[in-house]
């Protein structure tokens, strides 16, 4: 996951690459397996930095050392407010939506309102690429004839909704603040890495397992077949009705996932890293 983050973060002339140079992080390389600890620290640094910048922007603080003038109660309220705001802003939907059209039988005719395959009928295409009604329509079904059909230069939409949504998507692509989207992505991935790191430091087995669960869509999306299989097997071993491990082994899998080299609380590290 960290490698995916680095691929996205340090792509071309992105901010993270710039930050790496400005803060002289020469040991950080794009290849995570070579410099794991440096990358991990850098990611933490960048995440903390952007979180603080976000707060400075919201509370209108000119420098990082400016102390806002507020009572301790107000400060606590502001802290809650700012944190909630950051999380809500960077939040990505983690649930997977499967479009219902994928579940239909393959041989269903997917075009036109009538959903019937009329042989030899002339069809017209809706200009909205995201048209949900079928994209191609029989002239008869939309009240057109070969004489009244729009010319090649003219645009045609099957409905007012398609016309409006096409307008919206056009204007949206011009108004997207790419820099902001990039920072949001960075923060989302950074925070995501941070909570996993905390779970490992505390050897919080149930949480680590839970994170494996929410990482599955990421593994599938980025074609990490090995981790998809590993994660799936791990989760299947102790959740639901299919749990097939004896209690002792289950306990071992949940709680024996980290190693504490230096002793003390909150200093566990990943077993595979050791």
């Amino acid at each position: 996951l960290m490698q995916d983050t680095m691929n996205k973060m340090c792509h071309k002339k992105r901010d993270a690459l710039h930050l790496k140079n400005v803060f002289n992080q020469r040991s950080v390389s794009k290849n995570v397996s070579e410099t794991f600890n440096y990358v991990s620290d850098f990611l933490k640094f960048v995440t903390e930095g952007y979180t603080l910048l976000f707060a400075m922007e919201m509370l209108d603080l000119p420098t990082l050392d400016t102390v806002p003038t507020m009572t301790s109660a107000e400060a606590e309220e502001a802290l809650n407010y700012v944190s909630t705001c950051i999380v809500d802003t960077v939040w990505n939907d983690v649930t997977v939506h499967i479009p219902s059209s994928n579940l239909k039988e393959e041989d269903t005719y997917g075009f036109c309102n009538c959903k019937e395959d009329i042989e030899g009928a002339v069809m017209i295409e809706c200009e909205n690429v995201a048209c949900t009604e079928g994209v191609w329509f029989h002239l008869e079904c939309v009240g057109l004839t070969e004489e009244t059909v729009p010319g090649e230069d003219e645009v045609w939409f099957c409905s007012a909704e398609c016309r409006n949504s096409n307008k919206r998507s056009h204007s949206a692509s011009h108004t997207i603040d790419r820099k902001f989207e990039y920072v949001k992505m960075l923060l989302w991935r950074g925070l995501s890495d941070m909570i996993r790191r905390n779970a490992v430091r505390q050897n919080d087995g149930p949480m680590i397992t839970l994170y494996w669960k929410c990482d599955l869509p990421q593994f599938i999306k980025h074609n990490h077949t090995k981790y998809t299989i590993l994660g799936h097997r791990l989760i299947a071993k102790f959740t639901g009705l299919n749990c097939f491990l004896p209690k002792r082994l289950r306990q071992d899998l949940i709680w024996n996932r980290t190693i504490n080299l230096s002793g003390g609380r909150g200093t566990n590290i990943e077993t595979d890293l050791v």
Binding site: T47, E48, T51, L52, A55, L64, L79, N80, V82, S83, T84, I86, V87, W91, V94, T95, L191, S192, M194, I195, N198, L210, K213, C214, T239, G240
Partner: peptide, 24 residues
Amino acid sequence: RKADLVMMTDILYHEKLTKEIPGR
């Protein structure tokens, strides 16, 4: 404190994530 802000954001992020995972 700066560390409080980062920690608080982290906690809220964690809470929001665990709320959304089905079958917990």
